[in-house]
Design a protein around this nucleic acid. Structure first.
Lengths: 187, 187
DNA sequence: GTCTATATTTCGATAGAC
DNA sequence: GTCTATCGAAATATAGAC
């Protein structure tokens, strides 16, 4: 009888995500993952092609989580309120998994499948369309996404160094963006 | 008579910046820099403490360049026009040096000196104050910066995958943000 | 499927002669 | 200041026994 399974792909990905948050992308080594799941490093290669593959799996799992988080948010009747809730949900997610969040937006060979992307961006597109109209939905969604992701990325990287209250600044951005997108279309 | 200088700190940093753009941060090895400046790798350590130090110098030089680029932009009389010019200037800079630009916003130990930061952000603060008023200058500047940087970062990382014209989306964001910040302040 | 052992590669950094 | 020579430290990945 062969040796029974001592780990699983799910456990490996989960361990990888924990290590990623605790030690950063550079700290995500095959050895560290093996230690955490309780096997030797070479055994990981039975379930994962290589490290890049593991990073990709972790990124996709994180992206999927974000999508599910947003799916349960901002589906109300008031698009202005929905936008605010979506924006706060994204930021909360990023605060909970800062490294994983930033990993999503890193340039890499095999980006997220367009399917997964539509799933995660869906709620934002809906709100954008309700606010700015069908014709400007994509541009409005990109404005929202760019602002939120930019704010969060800068916050996480410590780029806001001039003091002030960041929570307040985020709410300020929400309020102004909402007014801007809900306002009369240009021209 | 000792051997004459065969390179300089400036040449090393300049070579590092070129390599960074051509081969990414991982490709920025001491060996690659040495090859490009025409010395052996150990010689670099006479002018640079270690690799991290070199990366820091490159980041600061890039940040300085960005600041100078913005200093000559958007100092006109019309804050709406100034904001548009500033936003376009940042994006043009990022397109010219994508890796260096993203390096600026990476979390690192010794962030840019507050002095260098004020220099680079100065023009944005001025425009924000002219648009949104003194009381909301910082928040407005952060909204602008977050949106522009978020848009550019996502663009550079290939995160915009749903088609559409990105130039147009950027102009859309400029127009809407300008209206939003110049509009009546939220009481 | 897991293990031990090891190959490979790469890179950062130092020592000491000239 | 530059060089040759080399160390030392990782980390990825493979081979083959059990």
């Amino acid at each position: 009888m062969p040796t029974p399974d001592r780990t699983s792909l799910g456990a490996i990905v989960a361990a990888g995500r924990d290590i990623l948050e605790a030690a950063g992308l550079a700290g995500l080594t095959m050895q560290a993952v093996a230690d955490r799941v309780g096997v030797r490093a070479p055994s990981l290669y039975k379930r994962v092609r290589n490290r890049d593959d593991l990073v990709r799996l972790i990124t996709e799992a994180t992206f999927q989580d974000l999508g599910e988080q947003l799916a349960t948010t901002g589906a109300g009747l008031d698009p202005r309120r929905d936008l605010a809730e979506l924006a706060r949900a994204v930021r909360a997610f990023a605060h909970a998994r800062p490294v994983g969040y930033q990993l999503i937006f890193m340039p890499r060979a095999g980006g997220p499948s367009t399917e997964a992307l539509r799933h995660a961006v869906g709620p934002v597109m809906r709100v954008a369309e309700n606010l700015a109209g069908e014709q400007h939905a994509l541009e409005a969604a990109r404005t929202i996404t760019a602002w939120a992701n930019g704010f969060i990325s800068m916050e996480l990287s410590g780029a806001f160094q001039l003091g002030g209250d960041l929570d307040q600044a985020y709410e300020f951005g929400i309020a102004r963006l909402t007014d801007a997108l809900a306002g009369p279309p240009p021209r």
